[in-house]
Every structure is written in structure tokens, then in C-alpha cells.
Design a protein around this nucleic acid. Structure first.
Ligand SMILES: [Zn+2]
Ligand SMILES: [Zn+2]
Ligand SMILES: [Zn+2]
Ligand SMILES: [Zn+2]
Lengths: 139, 139
DNA sequence: GTAACCCCTGTAGTATACTTTAGGGTCAAG
DNA sequence: CTTGACCCTAAAGTATACTACAGGGGTTAC
């Protein structure tokens, strides 16, 4: 049986994070020792790693709670899990699209900037100040 | 001269947002009418659009405050602006990289999931539970 | 003179995933 | 028997960009 500090070290998270996960219902409420200390079975370390891996691919703690419910729901099927993953996949692709558009615009702008001269002549600021299109007068 | 509501409508933001921008120092403190109402020159609408366009390409309000300081700083040069843009560009590329890696992993996992059968046999959950590599036993 | 609509200030709430703080017990070593 | 490391709870703070709320005054038309 492990103390919370042991679990934290082995799981690569802080003690506070563990208490937070418990409060959020992401890990089982551990039994307590006579002194009130939480006592964990070693396998809880894997549960924490489950959470961290899920976060690594973009799931929020709320999503992860969902996933954990599916794991223990006898009526749940593989496709339920797959649906969450596909949903997350589109969220991520959407974010990539938005960021790619930002990247393209910024890239165009930085290429247009001569990097010399006063800010008053900077095409980047011009673009930000401008009406809508990429090139137009300031009135 | 415009009331705050006029500016909000023309700038496509809420009245509250305008007061917030003012509080954050992103727009000039407007003069007040005898009744205490803020009175804006029409050009403030462009300043708001500057802020919104900068947000659209990923700048935070803090970044935008910086950019606005450069605009009015006589000692600032074009390259200062370009540096901010390049910095933002790398931030965005970094985010894209992270998201792309998430996308690849999720895509692999969803392809591996048969979408039928119980969750206990789901390769997605297996992957989340697993030690580190893509394939290994649960102990 | 009153309804409908605008404006004001200051403070608190929203979402996410923690971290920090305050205040206080427990345990092992020397 | 005290020191240092560890554990406990509950509440508040962090970052971002607003939004909402509470409570109150101004303006315009009928
Ligand atoms: Zn497990
Ligand atoms: Zn420039
Ligand atoms: Zn301007
Ligand atoms: Zn599956």
C-alpha cells in the first residue's frame, strides 16, 4: 500500500493533483489509514497514467471521466469509445485548421515586412489597421 | 462623436468589451460628456478592428498592448513589429505540431478500433492503459 | 410622467486544470 | 522530545478574455 506521496512520485504528478483528481471523481476514493492518510493500491499508478495519456492526446478531464465511465459500463461498446476518439479527432483537426490559417497570414505578413525603417511604414501594422483585404489605403 | 453603444455596434463588439479594453489600456481613455457618458471619435472603430484582427491571427490582448506601444514609440522600428510576428508564428507552429501529433495518434487508434464488441477489448482503451509503447500486455 | 432604452461603476462569475495558502495533525530519527 | 518530512482539509489564487449582475442615473417619445 502506498501513501499519496509515493503515488505522486511514481505517477509523475503532484500530491495536490492527486487530491484534485479524487475530488473530480477521476480516481477511486482511497481507503484511509487509522491516521486519516490515504492508502493506495499500486495499480492506481496505472490509472493516473491512463489520465495523463488521455490528456496527451487532447482529452479534457471531463472527457476522461466519460471514458472511465465507459470502461466500467457493461452496456458500453467499443464504438462508444471510438466515437469519443473520433469526436476529439475532429476537434483537433478544427484547431489545426484555425491555427494553420493564422500561420499562413502571419507568414505572409512577416515576409512582406522589410524589417528596416520606422513602424509607420510597417506592412504588418498596415495589414492590422486595414479595412479587410490584404492591401488598401488607410482611408 | 459616438456613444459607446454606437462604437460597439460599428466595431462588432459589446459595450462591456469596450469598457474592458479601456480598462486594459488597449484603447485611449475617451473624454466624457457632461452626463458622464464616454464620447468617442469615429476613428476608435478602426482601433477596435485592429485589436480584433490581431486576435484573429493569434495575438493575445497583452501582445496587442505591446504592438500598440510600438506603434506610438518613435524609437521603434519595423523589425520590432516583425519580431513579435515571428515570435507568434513560432508559437503557432509549435501548437500545430503538438496538435498534429495528437491527431496522428488518435487517427491510428481509431483505425485500430473495430467499433464492435465490448469495451474490454477496445484497442483505444488498451493504448491509454498501456505502459508506453503502442503494443504491450497489461502487466 | 412614465415606459423603453441608453449610460455609469464596481464586483463577481465563467471555463480549465491545477497550484497555493492557511492552519493544523502524524511519524521516524536522533 | 524536538526536528523534518509527510499527511490532512477547505478555500482562494492563477491565466485569459470577457460576461453578468447589482444598483442607480440620463434621455426621448408619447
Ligand atoms: Zn486500470
Ligand atoms: Zn514591418
Ligand atoms: Zn489608428
Ligand atoms: Zn474500440
Amino acid at each position: 500500500m502506498l501513501n499519496i506521496g509515493d503515488v505522486a512520485r511514481q505517477g509523475g504528478v503532484s500530491v495536490e493533483t492527486l487530491r484534485y483528481y479524487e475530488q473530480q471523481g477521476l480516481i477511486e476514493t482511497p481507503d484511509r489509514d487509522a491516521n486519516g492518510y490515504r492508502k493506495y493500491a499500486p495499480e492506481v499508478v496505472r490509472h493516473i497514467q491512463f489520465i495523463k495519456r488521455a490528456q496527451d492526446v487532447g482529452f479534457t478531464l471531463r472527457d476522461i471521466g466519460d471514458l472511465l465511465s465507459l470502461k466500467t459500463d457493461p452496456g458500453a461498446s467499443c464504438s462508444d469509445v471510438r466515437d469519443r476518439a473520433l469526436g476529439k479527432l475532429s476537434e483537433i483537426e478544427e484547431k489545426i485548421d484555425v491555427l494553420s490559417r493564422m500561420r499562413d497570414v502571419l507568414s505572409t505578413w512577416t515576409n512582406a515586412c522589410p524589417s528596416t525603417g520606422p513602424v509607420s511604414a510597417c506592412p504588418i501594422l498596415d495589414a492590422l489597421e486595414a479595412r479587410k483585404g490584404p492591401a488598401n489605403a488607410d482611408r
